[in-house]
């Protein structure tokens, strides 16, 4: 495989790497850069565990060639909390029992963040749409949806629903 240079913005950092041209973004993140919050559940675009933001839009990193990220901005769960302060989505997932085994959680939070970044006041149906590509096998969808709505309310300045 050809090795090619790649420069892109990842969370708070500028990344410059030489990569094999066939490398997926997921493999680059996990195997080369050691950012393992993003999970590999199916490696075929079915489960949503590998969801990241590319220029703000949720994408399945197992299906994206890393080379396609040249010059773009990639966000993973590692960059969601701000200097150790948890994002309202993270706190809402904790408070609302919206994580069980935890394997789908990074993808869920990223998909939810993509929604709230573009729509601060989603209704329940819009939340369901936003995470419809993310599979949770511990059957925790209802608390996940509730947590996303609670985080949205908090971010709008409203009071958080008490647990």
């Amino acid at each position: 495989m050809n090795r090619i240079p790649l420069r892109f913005h990842l969370n708070d950092a500028e990344i410059g790497e030489f990569i094999d041209s066939g490398t997926t973004l997921l493999s680059l993140l996990r195997d080369k850069l050691g950012l393992t919050a993003t999970k590999s559940g199916c490696n075929q675009g079915s489960c949503g565990a590998c969801t990241v933001l590319i220029n703000g839009a949720p994408q399945l990193s197992c299906l994206v060639l890393a080379a396609r990220c040249e010059g773009k901005s990639v966000a993973t769960l590692e960059g969601v909390s701000d200097n150790g302060t948890l994002h309202p989505l993270q706190r809402a997932f904790m408070d609302g029992f919206a994580a069980q085994c935890g394997f789908c959680t990074p993808g869920m939070i990223i998909a939810a963040k993509a929604l709230l970044d573009r729509n601060p006041d989603p209704d329940r149906g819009e939340v369901i749409d936003a995470i419809s590509g993310n599979i949770c096998r511990c059957t925790g969808y209802e608390p996940i949806i509730d947590a996303i709505l609670a985080a949205a309310a908090e971010m709008r300045g409203g009071k958080r629903k008490s647990a």
Binding site: L89, M94, D95, G102, F103, T105
Partner: peptide, 23 residues
């Protein structure tokens, strides 16, 4: 009585180490 899961902060921050998260 509600108690937070002991592992939940790791889950929401992506710091929980699953076996494949080791290189």
């Amino acid at each position: 009585v509600e108690r937070p899961r002991s592992d939940v902060q790791g889950h929401v921050t992506g710091r929980t180490q699953f076996y494949a998260d080791r290189n």
